[in-house]
Design a protein around this nucleic acid. Structure first.
Length: 831
DNA sequence: AGCACGCCGACT
DNA sequence: GTCGGCGTGCTC
């Protein structure tokens, strides 16, 4: 019998935005080492190397081409679980994107390896210079100086962008060589630890050492004593201790490196290196009893468990301050007792220290926090920690994170909590995958048969609909927790306000009086205006000219602190105008209202008080956001002006007044969710006012005091708000009654774009009839020098979305075939 | 998405 | 005449 020789082929995912999988061949002697979920190094394209993920192992050689061999198996064990691969597939299919896009979004950077070209001198170079140009010689000089250079450095030497020809010529002359190098490998953080050396093994030696050192090396004795003292403090054994170098360094103000080295040479101590985690696992061992639940909370807890028992997603609807967090804490505890993992999703901005500390208070170092502000090493270490989690472990049993935490390699998930489920930051728009973490987390939970709780005070129409139609289990808490009262919400009808000459038009007399009264009582004020910058646009008062971005179809926002006009779409800035370029007039007026202007002008009016601003600009730095929060908490700020950032996750004492300066612009935003969003935001902002035993006040300035949304905000009545929203959605064929797919076409030539979108629109209408709306230009019809056209697909709930998606996919493919390959198409599912 | 190959305008 | 612009097509 001859030994059977099997050829293995693997389908891999390449970390590049390409739709397909690629098939490679495994060298026979590696057959037994290849596992799904590992990374393999592959040659892709002409000379690029990538770490690709093994997604399928099979024995079917491709018919149309010869598969390349893989170069290397990178991981001994998989770094991605089978469940994750299923989720990636689902996301790519559901959200209409490439599997490579999902991989890029899911993996921490350290696991995404790709190669970079390096250039070196060729040792066969004979030094002949007759075919070389001056630039060639410059490159060779540079190389003999630096040994290895990058492609980019070579471009700089040549002083141009495209150097392929020059490089190829030099390679042909055997002057240089190129090779591919993998960049950015993860490096563990090393720390030095000190432990007892050979001589410190028995007591008799110790005495000798002491007498010896006392005579000749007093400093060494001092350091040794300090080391033993620290070990004693840490309750370690006398002859078997280890402390970090950092700990001993702290005891001395000068460097003791030389002393330690001497002690090491005498074999009194030994110094070694050890890996250290970058995560601040602040050894919080907590024995704090769980918070006691009120009767209403207890009923909610029981009800949620009933939903779990029925295998349903549970929606916990609880007004602000109804104590949802305490219920979450009990649910988490219950899941940990069952030795399962918990994923606690919060909106990006909700990850304030306030929430993190509150959860850590009960669960200590079991909590791992994960969000986009973390650096590469930290993200990698969390991935690794979750990957190595075993049922019942403490570490990495609770992940508290923003939307991207759904991509972590969970092993044994028991519970997913999505707090503030309505929050729009769960949906990713910009780079693909355009996924919704709330919806994806339900798919994720299904893989593990895990429970899901969605929580909100102001639910999304989708979730509310699923709750009342019994698809989800629904529990509503109407009672506030611990004596917190609903703030008193009042509208200020701007039509009825008397004009004053000392106040800007956006501060009514009534509001001014309330602000002063609040500040005089030593309380704080939050002013909400959902627009950053100084003035959204400027306008010539003679001819009406408005400066616009020359790459985008929007007016430029004036930012006073840099005295520049900035485009909020492409980010380009330009200096401000002194005179109108259209008519030469000097009367350029600031129009509209941004947070920066409010801050500026209020500093004059309330000059006795401290005013701060919280928006994208003032929170850019790593700790800027936290600093504003700290200042506010430490009474260094009396009035806080902010965009929607102030609406979320902040809990402060002493905020007695919250004002929404301009409710109207939000109500007239051109989006089918405008009312829903406005309501959610207004109610959330209102929730910042008042604390325990103290009723806060909320003032909303508007010209539309009869507007239905504002009336619902006054009553904080999310149920009748939702019922109105649902009625509208049904009538106008929007979610949750219809599924939406938005197709955006982009091209820098408007005629090409119009042609392409007409053709696509017509073809889709042929197949899908009046489900297709458009093509029409969006309200901002040009961004970053590209014109935009949109086609909206409305799919009724009982139609097969996969069939319709296939039709869309096919038509996009044939549009590409028809010579419109340069038209970019972006598909956004459930926008 | 990169990145190469390939076909036309402005410069030594 | 060449350099380098970016249009087009492929990657196992």
């Amino acid at each position: 019998m001859t030994e059977e020789r099997v050829d293995y082929f693997i389908d891999v995912i390449i970390p590049v935005a390409i739709p397909q999988f690629f098939t490679y061949r495994v060298p026979v002697n590696w057959n037994e080492y290849i596992i799904v979920g590992q990374r393999v190094l592959v040659n892709f394209g002409k000379n690029k190397l990538y770490a690709a993920i093994v997604s399928k192992i099979h024995q079917n050689p491709p018919r149309m081409y010869e598969a390349k061999y893989i170069e290397e198996i990178i991981d001994e064990t998989p770094i991605v679980t089978q469940n994750q691969l299923k989720i990636w597939d689902w996301i790519a299919d559901y959200y209409f994107c490439n599997i490579g896009d999902v991989m890029l979004a899911a993996l921490p950077n350290y696991l995404k390896l790709s190669s970079e070209t390096r250039i070196i001198l060729c040792n066969q170079f004979d030094g002949t210079t007759e075919f070389l140009t001056e630039k060639d010689l410059e490159l060779i000089d540079f190389l003999s100086l630096k040994t290895i250079i990058t492609w980019e450095e070579a471009c700089n030497v040549f002083g141009k962008k495209s150097i392929h020809k020059d490089i190829n010529k030099l390679i042909a002359l055997k002057a240089i060589e190129v090779f591919e190098e993998i960049k950015d490998k993860y490096k563990t953080l090393k720390i030095k630890v000190i432990s007892g050396g050979e001589l410190l093994k028995d007591e008799n030696q110790l005495k000798n050492i002491f007498t010896e050192l006392e005579k000749k090396a007093f400093k060494q004795l001092e350091v040794l004593m300090a080391i033993l003292e620290i070990a004693k403090q840490k309750k370690q054994e006398k002859f078997n201790f280890y402390i970090t170098k950092e700990e001993i360094n702290k005891k001395f103000d000068k460097s003791i490196d030389a002393v330690l080295k001497a002690l090491e040479e005498k074999q009194i101590i030994s110094i070694s290196e050890q890996d250290k985690s970058r995560l601040s696992l602040d050894n919080l061992k907590t024995n704090i009893p769980l918070p006691t639940l009120s009767e209403a909370q207890n009923i909610a807890f029981e009800s949620i468990n009933k939903g779990f028992h029925d295998n349903k997603v549970t929606f916990l609807h609880g007004v602000t301050s109804s104590g949802k967090t305490e219920i979450y804490i009990h649910l988490i505890n219950q899941t940990l007792q069952n030795k399962k993992q918990v994923l606690f999703l919060v909106p990006e901005i909700g990850l304030t220290t306030q929430l993190v500390m509150r959860i850590k208070q009960y669960f200590g170092d079991r909590v791992a926090v994960y969000h986009s502000k973390f650096n590469n090493s930290e993200r990698y270490e969390i991935w690794d920690g979750v990957l190595n989690y075993k049922s019942g472990d403490n570490n990495f049993s609770i992940i508290l994170g923003a939307r991207s935490s759904i991509f972590l390699p969970f092993k044994d998930l028991g519970l997913v909590i999505v707090d503030e489920e309505h929050d729009s930051s769960y949906k990713q728009f910009d780079p693909a995958p355009r996924y919704n973490a709330r919806d994806t987390s339900i798919f994720l939970a299904n893989q593990f048969n895990a429970n899901v709780v969605l929580g909100s005070a102001t639910p999304s129409a989708e979730t509310y609909f699923n709750a009342i139609t019994k698809k989800y289990h629904y529990h509503h808490i109407t009672e506030r927790f611990g004596g917190v009262e609903l703030p008193q919400i009042e509208l200020i009808d701007l039509k009825k306000q008397a004009k004053t000459n000392f106040l800007p038009e956006y501060i009514s007399k009534t509001l001014h009086d309330e602000i002063l009264a609040t500040l005089e009582k030593g309380k704080k004020v939050i002013l909400f205006q959902n627009r950053r910058g100084y003035a959204p646009f400027i306008q010539c008062s003679k001819c009406g000219w408005i400066p616009e971005c020359n790459s985008c179809d929007v007016s430029l926002t004036y930012h006073k602190y840099i005295n520049k006009l900035k485009c909020h779409y492409c980010g380009k800035g330009q200096s401000n105008y002194n005179e109108c370029p259209a008519c030469g007039s000097h009367e350029l007026k600031m129009r509209g209202l941004g947070t920066e202007k409010i801050e500026d002008e209020l500093n004059l009016i309330y000059s006795k008080y401290n005013i701060a601003r919280m928006d994208l600009e003032t929170t850019k730095g790593k700790d800027a956001y936290q600093k504003i929060i700290d200042d506010f908490e430490n009474d260094k700020i009396d009035i806080l002006i902010g965009t929607q950032m102030v609406a979320k996750g902040l809990d402060f004492e002493k905020v007695a007044l919250v004002a929404i300066l301009d409710a109207d612009t939000m109500l007239y935003y051109p989006d089918f969710r405008a009312f829903e969003r406005a309501f959610q935001l207004f109610v959330q902002v209102s929730g910042r006012a008042g604390r325990r035993n103290e009723k806060g006040k909320v003032l909303i300035q508007t010209y539309q005091s009869n507007h239905d949304v504002l009336q619902k905000v006054i009553l904080s009545d999310s149920i009748s708000m939702m019922n109105n929203v649902l009625a509208d959605r049904k009538q106008f064929k929007y979610p949750p009654y219809f599924r939406l797919i938005n197709i955006t076409l982009k091209h820098k030539n408007i005629d090409t774009l119009k042609q392409a979108s007409e053709i696509l629109g017509n073809e889709l209408k042929k197949a899908l009839g009046d489900r297709i709306l458009g093509p029409k230009a969006p309200s901002i019809s040009r961004v970053k020098d590209k014109f935009l056209m949109e086609i909206l697909v409305k799919i009724e709930k009982n139609a097969s979305p996969s069939q319709i998606k296939k039709i869309i996919r096919d038509n996009l493919g044939s549009l590409y075939q028809k010579g419109f390959s340069s038209v970019r198409v972006v598909v956004d599912v459930d926008p």
